[in-house]
Design a binder for these strands. Structure first.
Lengths: 206, 206, 206, 206
DNA sequence: GATGAATGAGTGTTCATTCAT
DNA sequence: AATGAATGAACACTCATTCAT
């Protein structure tokens, strides 16, 4: 039992280190195997290729986060407009954000890989997926708010940009604050900023 | 001298295409030369190495933008606090933004290279430079505003994030809107959003 | 495992030939691999780089000779002055010389590589090492002899030159006499010549 | 007149520097031309190829030394056996040696090139030529001396080695003593050593 | 006399991947 | 489950040399 999956684990550990240091493209399988104490051939017993190796590090946390986001947005689709339009009450937004942060710092290395070291792999655009999800949410919200306020709704580009910026805020936290506590401290201000800007768009005169 | 420096131009053109398609690291000099219709040796007559080739595409627009930003921030250091704190008057900010956008779309491909395809070259961190410059500016502004409003100033992380987000907004435009006109249409809303969020930080109760 | 490390041996054999023909710098790894019937990649499975390939041909004989010389000079440090100053009795010197020759001809090709084909590798100055060792020995000898004979000792340049010449005599043999027997025949005269000159330096009037 | 041969001179000067620094093989014509302030094409107006460039630095001093040696040995062919066999009178040998040294230090750089930096060019074995000349001389001398002393003459290998060693003594001086004065100081001892050894060969019992 | 341009073969080295054993 | 061996294509870069102008 001890030795059973040990090699696989060693490889993943060694791969994580190499990918974090050099990024997907520049990472060397030779190196990964050497540091794991096995030959290159062994790697191909456990993984199909370089990309599969990377995927095995990243896929699980990624799909969990996807689920987390999905369930959050599923709930929110029934949210009342009243809640959304009041700046004072942005508590729920923050709660979700904190949840996400907690999750991302739990898989700190893995999200580092996904968000900043995946260039060249099929995950290089996976931030875009989250932006997409977020975007759909913001589209619906914007239309609802606009309607309830008798204001003009936002165009697609703005929706996309806000979604992008919001996701990017998480990426920025993860890549600039090493500890979860520090990240949590910042997130409140950030959400406040984002919502303030967001609401201002609908109160704009012209 | 076939046709007055034709080869050099062909190489630059071919290089631009290759770099845009594959990024700095993955670009193949062989390919660039082949598509330019010359041998690899020819490239080394005109350029020192791969990095120099990239630099010759990118350096001029980059230093011009640097100058543009420098002169803008030089002017603004004498701006009065009154101006800064009024949401209604954010005209100047937009004018500068439009200038920057105009410039960036004039060198559309080049900034695409700098901002998204320079990984592995010495330009890979040059977005950070713009963030740094922007950050210093925001630091000063925040302190002034906070003082004049009797509010708390923003901590370093928020300053950095706002600077990052602002620069990123330009990058986002350039990579998501193909034409300058469309980009200009969006920039007003974006600046409005950013300033709204920014001002809200100082009016925050708690 | 074609035939028990056959490829490695083929590579070493092919490399020896190429290095002997063209010298370290001008030798082509491509050529070596081609003649060994493998691709260039294969070489890098067995050897780290060009220098490592060369080293694997040369290192073992070299360190053995180093040891041989070391042990010889260790013994001789206790030699009595009487022995040294008599021309008639230079038997021991010849015995050692014959040992060295026997060893060098046993690794004929390898010493050919070390002594005449190593320019550009880290072995290019390894003759100097032997000269250095020899030089220290001669320095001590000269001082002892001079003292016992009431003569002036030799200056540093002469010591160095004699050491150099002595080592060079071996190199010369190896590069000019193809067979060990012929070399052994010559060494006696050479040692006689060298010792005669050496002793004459101390009997010189002026 | 001023500008006439200037380029050629610059090229030769630059070439001398490069060849001295890197040796014939590793020297780069690109570099030589760059440091001379001309393009590679210009070089080929004055010189046929790399080897010709090297030759133009080296040929003149080389042929002058050849002449010097030739005339010396021409004289000596009529020398009496008596002179040669007396150790006390080796004055003439020293005089010639000093002449040679004076000449070699007059063209210090050039002989440095010939003797230590010519590997890969057609001059790489040109020391052998001098050895050949010297060898013929020693052959005749040995036979004469042997005859006059009723001793056995030396075999071809010994003749060759003595010739080689003698020439090598000059090379050694040039590469280890930077100034002519120092070299001249040493040459007397060296010649004394060489002649002592030489004479001892004929007085040998067995 | 000399330039500017270009060639084409060559260099050592690295890579992800394969596969018989 | 893993090794040891090998592939073959690719890499950036350097070289001496050529030649029309």
């Amino acid at each position: 039992m001890k030795n059973e999956k040990e090699t696989r684990e060693n490889l993943l550990k060694s791969a994580k280190k190499e990918f974090l240091e050099k990024g997907f493209m520049q990472a060397s399988l030779r190196n990964i195997c050497k540091n794991a104490g096995v030959t290159t051939g062994a790697l191909y017993f456990f993984f199909e290729d370089k990309e599969d190796l990377f995927a095995n590090l990243v896929q699980e946390p990624l799909s969990q986060l996807t689920q987390l986001m999905g369930s959050h947005y599923a709930d929110e689709s029934e949210i009342s407009v009243l809640e959304l339009s009041t700046l004072d009450d942005f508590g729920e937004g923050i709660d979700v954000a904190k949840q996400v942060i907690h999750f991302m710092y739990h898989y700190y290395d893995e999200f580092q890989l996904i968000l900043t070291k995946s260039q060249g792999s099929r995950f290089e655009n996976c931030v875009d997926y989250f932006v997409d999800v977020s975007e759909k949410h913001y589209r619906i919200m914007a239309d609802k708010i606009a309607e309830s306020m008798g204001a003009k709704t936002l165009d697609d580009y703005m929706i996309h940009w806000v979604a992008h910026m919001q996701i990017d805020a998480f990426v920025h936290l993860l890549t600039h604050e090493a500890s979860e506590e520090k990240a949590v401290k910042q997130i409140e201000s950030i959400v406040y900023y984002i919502i303030s800007g967001w609401m201002a768009m609908f109160q704009r005169k012209r």
